[in-house]
């Protein structure tokens, strides 16, 4: 999936040259398109709406004759009469135009990713050090930023747990302050207590995983018992899941301890380089 593909802009037009929709029909049309992931502009003379850009545009309306004229423009504009269309048919029509225009498909990815509150962030790089999936990076001024949204593991808020300032939000998370609710002093104390997942496990989580990996290897060489090694790893990950409200499926899909150690070292080197600059 590419997040950089342009999106189709839909305008519900009820002005000159078109018949207005009844309120119930307007609601049915807009909600059916929103449910398919589209954004809809309902234009009227009373308030401004966002101006057009270079994205392809689809203008929907009840046009009794031919659609209204459009000023000469570089923007690809498509018109469709929706007089006889039920909401489900409307969604199908829009999907056809979306395919024809090569614009972004919605719904292929659940938008779950961290959002940084820079009013709170101290650029400590703990999130960068912690995340194994390369979600974080640094900008040209070596400030932390979210760079690979779609690498984030759906429903996993683990990095927000390691942030000492409660500066990382997941707006679709169930509870505050991770969901964007204001951060209270009590939250900060709570965060500090639960954050340090590594402390909960008795030290550096990566060091611990490495140690377990070494122990497992040692046992493995003696016993050749892969089931035992796997059970050991799962036990460790279940403990992590409970500590950080991390979906078990996320932890169970983590790479091998060796790969985790390698990625962690890579992330820590990045963070150290950013801090040391």
């Amino acid at each position: 999936m590419s997040l950089s593909t342009p999106t189709l802009r839909i305008l519900l037009y009820e002005g000159e040259g078109a018949q207005p929709l009844a309120a119930a029909d307007r609601y049915a049309a807009i909600s059916s398109l929103l449910e398919k992931g589209y954004a809809v502009t309902r234009s009227a003379a009373d308030r401004p709406v966002a101006p057009a850009d270079s994205s392809p545009m689809l203008v929907l309306g009840r046009f009794p004759g031919s659609p209204p004229d459009v000023a000469e423009t570089d923007i690809p504009v498509h018109f469709h009469d929706i007089t006889a269309l039920a909401p489900a048919q409307l969604a199908d029509l829009v999907e056809t135009v979306r395919t024809d225009t090569g614009t972004a498909q919605h719904g292929a990815w659940k938008p779950w990713f961290p959002v940084i509150d820079y009013d709170r962030c101290t650029n400590c790089m703990q999130c960068l050090s912690f995340c194994l999936f390369g979600v974080y990076g640094v900008d040209g001024d070596r400030h932390i930023q979210v760079q690979n949204n779609d690498n984030c593991k759906t429903n996993c808020p683990a990095c927000s747990r390691v942030c000492p300032e409660a500066a990382i939000m997941f707006p679709k998370y169930k509870a505050g302050p991770i969901n964007g609710d204001l951060v209270s002093d009590a939250d900060l104390q709570k965060e500090k207590m639960k954050v340090d997942i590594s402390a909960l496990l008795g030290g550096d989580v990566y060091a611990m995983l490495r140690l377990r990996s070494e122990k497992a290897k040692s046992r493995f060489s003696k016993e050749r018992d892969s089931d035992k090694a796997l059970a050991e790893r799962q036990k460790c990950l279940i403990k992590l899941a409970a500590a950080g409200d991390i979906p078990p499926e996320v932890l169970m899909s983590l790479p091998s301890p060796e790969e985790i150690a390698r990625r962690a070292e890579e992330a820590q080197a990045k963070a150290a380089a950013a801090r040391g600059a």
């Binding site: 309120a23 502009t41 009227a44 990815w109 990713f113 959002v115 949204n149 679709k172």
Partner: peptide, 22 residues
């Protein structure tokens, strides 16, 4: 919809933010 005013309705602001939607 009943008010008749102009407005922008988006399916999901998070998705738009992730896309850096113009």
């Amino acid at each position: 919809c009943e008010s008749g005013v102009a407005f922008e309705a988006v399916a999901d602001l998070c998705e738009m933010s992730a896309r850096r939607d113009p």
